[in-house]
């Protein structure tokens, strides 16, 4: 009884739509409670807005993305497994080479963590004649997140799908990314609006691959299996799996223990079962979380931690798979 929603139509929302606009192409268009009083209600209710052909944003996105060489998605079905931390480390590692232009796009609209992790939470976005300019962490690392657009970090973004999709389209077409070697996209947990939208919007420009992040427990692996199924359904190539929080080394006695036990074989078994590559396992180091809270790069701060070695090996492997070494 569960069917996958056709991945063809991207609901569009006019800029003057009310907060809970169901999307002009939805069946509820013009009929939902939110539509009362909206200037577009009649047009939407007449059905004229449905199936109106390709999204008008697509050619603009294609043009903007034509100067971006590699587009990488960081995905995970489960929340809190370290997607944003990994995204930040990956981008920092790319940007360590000063000739490599790197961008991070955070499409976790309801819970953006990227600004905090990169230590730029108080920045705002400026617009110029060529579009919104990303916030630069360093000369060659630009970042865009909804976190830069909120009046206060306390504000909740209570948006339904269509509004989130609209913002993702804007991030792709209106941000002045410039020439980029890498664009790393951080996503929210799940397989819903944000994921479908970014995949559809980038279809023409091509996604180079997705990195799937997980933790060792079955509860997380279950969700990652769903994400793999999603990638296969929508045709996104997968670079491999990263296992986070694998094993904990006590800072006092150096004894290793498993906080999140791989009760069903962990990411290794998942990789075997799904035919994907296990890019590496990163041990749980409390300093990783601290670094994220303070907005500093863990691999630069603690170069001798086993977790740093694991991160760097994974990043090298990603570069090899992409053919960039």
């Amino acid at each position: 009884m569960i069917a996958v929603q056709a991945a063809a139509a991207i609901p569009t929302v006019p800029s003057n739509a009310p907060e809970h606009c169901p999307g002009t192409e939805s069946e509820q268009a013009g009929k939902s409670n939110a539509c009362d009083g909206c200037a577009n209600q009649e047009v939407c209710a007449s059905g004229a807005t449905k199936n109106q052909g390709p999204d008008p944003a697509l050619p603009f996105i294609r043009a903007r993305m034509s100067t971006v060489k590699r587009k990488i998605l960081v995905l995970s079905g489960k929340g809190g497994v370290g997607k944003s931390t990994f995204t930040a480390q990956l981008a920092w590692a790319f940007a360590a080479d000063e000739d490599t232009q790197t961008g991070i796009m955070d499409i976790d609209i309801c819970g953006p963590s990227i600004p905090t992790i990169l230590g730029i939470a108080s920045e705002t976005v400026h617009s110029s004649s060529s579009g919104w300019s990303p916030v630069y962490v360093q000369d060659n690392l630009g970042v865009m997140s909804v976190g830069f657009m909120l009046p206060s970090s306390k504000d909740a973004v209570m948006w339904r799908g269509p509004k989130k999709n609209g913002l993702i389209a804007q991030f792709l077409k209106d941000v002045d990314w410039g020439d980029l070697d890498y664009l790393v996209v951080d996503t929210p947990p799940g397989t819903s609006d944000e994921h479908l939208s970014v995949v559809q919007y980038l279809k023409e420009s091509g996604i180079d691959g997705a990195v799937l992040v997980t933790t060792p427990q079955e509860v997380a692996l279950q969700d990652v299996r769903r994400e793999i199924d999603f990638c296969r359904k929508v045709g996104v190539p997968m670079l491999g799996i990263v296992e986070n929080m694998a094993g904990f080394v006590c800072p006092k006695c150096n004894g290793e223990s498993q906080i999140f036990k791989p009760s069903t074989g962990g990411a290794k078994k998942l990789a075997e079962d799904t035919g994907l590559e296990l890019l590496g396992s990163v041990p749980l180091d409390p300093r990783i979380g601290k670094s994220a809270d303070f907005g500093v790069s863990f691999i630069d701060e603690y170069p001798d931690s086993p977790a740093t070695t694991a991160y760097l090996d994974i990043i090298d492997r990603i570069k090899v798979i992409l053919g960039d070494v």
Binding site: I2, S192, Q222, R226, I228, K233
Partner: peptide, 20 residues
């Protein structure tokens, strides 16, 4: 839970807002 409605536990539920 929606988990009880899936044929296969690895199946993804790829739904946009209105279906959810």
């Amino acid at each position: 839970s929606v988990g009880f409605l899936l044929k296969n536990k690895g199946d993804s539920v790829v739904w946009r807002g209105p279906k959810k």
